[in-house]
Design a protein around this nucleic acid. Structure first.
Ligand SMILES: [Mn+2]
Ligand SMILES: [Mn+2]
Ligand SMILES: [Mn+2]
Ligand SMILES: [Mn+2]
Lengths: 143, 143
DNA sequence: CGCAAAATGTAGGGTAAGCTACATTTTGTT
DNA sequence: AACAAAATGTAGCTTACCCTACATTTTGCG
């Protein structure tokens, strides 16, 4: 019996790490759609150069990642014409933005300095499950 | 002046994403040293097969990552003889384990179900800065 | 001991994400 | 309109991390 439990724990541990790997793999897509949506809202256009600068990567890297966004049905664009989000991309951006805000607010509520909260949230947000998000919202009194 | 502020915000945003990328890059090393330290403590040896199984990856992948640990001065091993941690590796393992526990405890304190807390913490832990860790500890009343 | 099973290691391949360098197109300013 | 600057796109390279398949070594047992 302890053997079964030990095996379960081992499998659960493996599953935990697998979850973390999956979250890590989608983190980049999430940050891109959130940023593109921000740019579209605030300036009406999302240009590769601006995206690259805001993410701190080269424009070549941004263009390649945008190609992946398109492949995954989250964005579309014509050469030299800026990037736009599909309905799926826009929906994802909204989810991601909400999560980002809740994470920042929880960190600040726990006494983390605002600038630090922003920095840490940028990574943490991608690992917050729906259940944890719900708990966070409840904790913040927005249930 | 608003121009300067806008530029600063842009640079800060880029720095934020750069931080997240750095954390992502060291996440794997952290999980490995923590696990290796656990195995050494509990069973006296850390074999590639066990590491692989507990992480949910193939043993070939584990062996290659162990090679990286060695390259980075965190571990050492002789062929067919199991893996050991250097002083640096051991120190990192202790830091990482402490962080892991604090994150889990904070999540649980916020009402996240224990199993979910374990899953999410596996990813979140790598993005918790020292300042945030300190805030978490204070919040838990272990200041 | 000797052999089979388990563990370990190696080879080779795929995708993702980053970079620099260079080519092309568009934009903006005389 | 012409030219320079900016933006965009392409090519080619690197590193990380995952895999399967196969080779080798060690371990455990009859
Ligand atoms: Mn992020
Ligand atoms: Mn974000
Ligand atoms: Mn982890
Ligand atoms: Mn951990």
């Amino acid at each position: 019996m302890e053997q079964d439990e030990a095996e379960m724990t081992e499998a659960q541990e493996a599953a935990r790490h697998a979850s973390a790997r999956t979250a890590r793999a989608s983190a980049l897509m999430q940050d891109y759609v959130e940023l593109i949506d921000d740019l579209l809202s605030s300036t009406g256009e999302a240009r590769p150069t601006d995206i690259a600068r805001r993410l701190g990567v080269s424009h070549a890297t941004a263009i390649k990642t945008i190609a992946r966004l398109k492949r995954e049905g989250l964005a579309h664009s014509k050469p030299y014409r800026g990037v736009f989000l599909t309905a799926a991309g826009h929906a994802l951006a909204n989810e991601v933005r909400a999560r980002h805000r809740v994470v920042v607010d929880v960190l600040k509520a726990l006494g983390v300095p605002p600038e630090v909260a922003e920095i840490d949230a940028e990574g943490i947000e991608h690992h917050v499950s729906d259940a944890t998000l719900a708990a966070f919202e409840k904790f913040l009194g927005r249930s």
